[in-house]
Design a protein around this nucleic acid. Sequence first.
DNA 1: TGGTACATGTACCACTTGGTACACGAGGGG
DNA 2: CCCCTCGTGTACCAAGTGGTACATGTACCA
Lengths: 186, 186
Amino acid sequence: MERKDPRRDLLERAVDYLSEHGVIARSLRQLAAELGTSHRMLIYHFGSMEGLLVEVVREVEARQRAVLADLDPTGSPADVAKAFWRRFTDPALYPNERLFFELYGQALQGRPGTEALLPEVVTAWLGPLVALGKSHGLSERDALVNARLGMAVTRGLLLDLLATGDLEAVNEAMDRFVDTYVAGLP
Amino acid sequence: MERKDPRRDLLERAVDYLSEHGVIARSLRQLAAELGTSHRMLIYHFGSMEGLLVEVVREVEARQRAVLADLDPTGSPADVAKAFWRRFTDPALYPNERLFFELYGQALQGRPGTEALLPEVVTAWLGPLVALGKSHGLSERDALVNARLGMAVTRGLLLDLLATGDLEAVNEAMDRFVDTYVAGLP
DNA sequence: TGGTACATGTACCACTTGGTACACGAGGGG
DNA sequence: CCCCTCGTGTACCAAGTGGTACATGTACCA
């Protein structure tokens, strides 16, 4: 059970650590020291600093997708949207989300090792969200437009939340959107 | 007229350059070389690397606010929203917006010198947007909620646009939001 | 038993980093 | 005319960087 894959273990701890402390200004050596190894080990397992970054990006993406996966698609669109939002605003996810936005920003600027995020960052979510919309009777086209819009609202409010910490305010904005826009959908 | 302030000049060119190339992985020396000076000059004018970053953040913020300032608040909310969005999706602004999101991400992770962004990043926009909403007859509370929501939609779709480059798709999503939600407001 | 593949530590390398010391030239005011 | 401030360049520094060489430990298989 307890896997003996040191690389996997190292990666998970690295992602956790970087989620808490940010990926900038962390060198191989600092990171290694803080994980209780030597920087030699990170090189050994990931080839290079950039190789590690690539894996971190992949893992962050996988975690995001895991959040999406345990979405329960039953109930009205409004109910699904609210459950979705509640899941995202779980404070336990804040560090991962911060890391996600940090990497997103760096990917936009072309930092090597992070580019892999960009193609996925939107499209990977569109698929499931479109399917969800269609299951509620939307046309392909409408489902796509609304998926995009819903994702934008979610990410935009998440950025707001992470910057201000004002959960009440962003909840209010999301409620307004869901009650006024989403509720009138199907 | 335009002469006399080498520091100001240096700062503007630095922001332009960092907009195009990203703030990570740019050292004092690289940046200086690319601006045609020595890193000594950057230290002289800004005190330190972090001092420079602080000024860059301030300038990016100022530019964002300049975009907000030349908003024409006449016309229906839907018209204003669409004009607003059109202004933001001017490709000439992409580099600035990329830099904005990059710094935003780093500020969320607590990079020294960037923290100044966080308090402003939401609240600085709320004021003018709330005033706009109220001028169209919304209550204080409604204006606030809608300002927050509008900002989230804008930033979320901007993130989408910068990642995918699919202007048509994000325009469609914004149109849908404006026509369905904003149009029903006043 | 021995070998071999993985995992890890120690020591080192060349290079870059942010920051400093210092010298120099131009311009203006006394 | 001298001096002083501003802006700039050159040279330098200690510290930290990513990466490599090599030796070692450990476990499992033949």
